[in-house]
Design a protein around this nucleic acid. Structure first.
Lengths: 217, 217, 217, 217
DNA sequence: AATGAATGAGGATTCATTCAT
DNA sequence: CATGAATGAATCCTCATTCAT
């Protein structure tokens, strides 16, 4: 949220810097999605962004800066969208809504998520922590949601369980993006949300036959 | 298992080919784990494998062949290990055991899984289907496990739900590998297995307070 | 002249492209003459041209492009020079002059001709037709010269004969270049021109003894 | 004829050496015709010859040896065939026959001639003289033919003219091979022989109109 | 601020040749 | 004698980065 890693720009005009970087990011996301970070050249990015290679380097220092900017920007977008779920009131129902909302966001930003998901590992040891930090923040949002339910007496859960649950929700959202080659063939987004919510809340045991299975747990 | 994509070797002695490729894969996995596929040079792989660059190319045609060989080999290892869970008898208890066993396998092969998970996307359009196919096969193993429970009358579940559940289990196993930077700090493997199994079977609802929460769903 | 095969350049400034390519061609001709196309490395060519290997590849795509550029340029030079012989007036005397002029051109450009002659065959199936086409054009120039003599009533010759004669002249010109190791030891250029012209016009029969040989054919 | 450049073989049995080399040459000619010397690998030659790369190197020292062997062998074949024209009796008629015979030989061996013609230049400074020597010998055969006519009083020609004429005949024979892409479209071998012979003997002047042109030379 | 030509280190791949079996 | 696995120098080409205009 706060602690940004500064990427150096030669150009002074901060508004211009932001504008150019946005163009750059848009182009880069598109290219990374198709060919991955390593197979995309800086020239291609410059071209996709609509300016020359020389100009590109007025706004970054290295190619890796672009990747960082891209990842950073994507997390910001996702974070921005998710911000509002933290406003929930702490009922299981609002937790459900939060999850559904999150899955919808992941569907909308699937390209971006896919890119970030697959390329973040190419960040240098230097930049990685910043991105990982962001991810933890997002997992943290779900933790907050859950904890609010606990505070409200809707749930009884240990800290570790909260954390793992938040991870699970987070990963199931990503899963819709990075396994879509497989999932989209089988489910619509609505189905996916409904079924995942069901699994999340009731688990396998929710599928035990009603007549006889009642007693064994 | 059957439909392999053949990687061309100049050397004829099939045993030798297998031996050299094993050496190659071992070295490559190690390097890919550290630096990723793109940042690893063929020379480094040759060196890590213990032979010259010329020799390397007697056993493959392109660098990408190595990646394919690596992915292929990893899936084979995982598959081999998982084969035995499909022998389960179709009770929820054995499903639990199967899952636990799978998580253990993923822990043991975590380096390999991480590599495959992060680099498979760099495979060419040509090789990717073979690897994706393998992944589907593995998800399929869990589907079999689940379906056997259904046949035994232990569960009532629609086809789509079977498939999604299998996906979830599969991804939670991978998650232990590819999010370990975060998870390992919080959980031991045993904890992880136990807690995930619990979530998987009972869901969030299993954490409702006993006294009052009984009625509302 | 018209149908050129375009060789791709990254650099946009067309004038610069032409300038750099000229430098490149000059260096390449020199090297090809000494070592042949295959034994010459791109680095050597870059160095001979006076720029770096990276710069070289801003003006071509593959090594073969250089060969094409070289062959193309040489044919253009020869063609340009020969253009003026087609202005001849259609007498046997001007045909003679044309031939002499051509032989002189071939002597001046002997290095270039030798190179093109020996390396053109290394052109890809893709580029070869363009070069062959040029050669046919040049043979065509002699055909025109001859046909003009026919139109003027100086000669009576069938089409096929015109074509073969043009070929012969063309090859005798090249011969001076590619067999010079042998011919230059025996003849000066002037001698060569005079004697070849004599053979071309009078043939062997021109050397029959005057007194008795009249009757035997 | 005599002075052969020895190519070293590890194998002692001279008959075997000759046999293996013949196999080798046959395969090499075929490959060189298609791809040229430089683009043909020693492995391919070994394979085409029917033995292993190891065996190949029992019979030669370097790849260039193969080229030398090929060129040498081709010249021997051509020489052998031409040997009999030197038996001619020294009339213009028999000179004509010799030329026709030579053109026929060049047609039969056109692949070989083409190969030798295009690749001989790749021979090292070391081997080239031997091949050039052979070529001079062959030109020499035509010189002999011509000189015999002179001795018989059928012709009056200076030494230089004899030599150039021999060259011309020689080159016109090769021309049928190395320009066949163009010539074969226009002429049959018979036509070519007839027309070339006609040009060789009568020259352009033979095509002057009969009625008026008699006086002007 | 913008441009794009120049650079050259770096990387994938080939292939003639050797040598142990 | 025959084999074919091993070698590594050599080579083509790419691309991130710089810098003069």
């Amino acid at each position: 949220m706060n602690s940004k890693r500064k990427v150096h720009a030669t150009v002074k005009d901060q508004q211009l810097v932001q504008k150019r970087r946005d163009e750059m990011i848009r182009g880069a996301v598109h290219l990374f999605k198709q060919k991955g970070f390593h197979r995309t050249t800086t020239r291609e990015i410059a071209k996709a962004a609509g300016f020359s290679i020389g100009t590109l380097y007025e706004y970054i220092r290295t190619k890796e800066d672009i990747l960082y900017l891209v990842c950073d920007s994507i997390y910001d977008q996702v974070s921005d969208r998710l911000q509002q779920i933290t406003l929930s009131e702490g009922t299981l129902e609002s937790l459900k809504l939060g999850i559904a909302y999150y899955f919808n966001v992941m569907d909308e930003l699937q390209d971006e998520v896919l890119v970030m998901y697959q390329e973040a590992k190419s960040l240098s040891k230097d930049a990685l922590p910043y991105v990982l930090r962001k991810e933890m923040d997002m997992v943290g949002m779900f933790e907050i949601l859950i904890r609010r339910c606990i505070e409200n007496g809707e749930l009884e859960m240990r800290d570790k369980e909260v954390r793992l649950l938040a991870h699970n929700i987070f990963v199931e959202g990503q899963m819709w993006g990075f396994r879509r080659w497989s999932l989209k063939k089988a489910f619509s987004l609505e189905e996916y949300i409904e079924m995942q919510t069901n699994f999340l809340f009731s688990g396998i045991n929710g599928f035990k036959p009603k007549n006889k299975g009642d007693t064994n747990e």
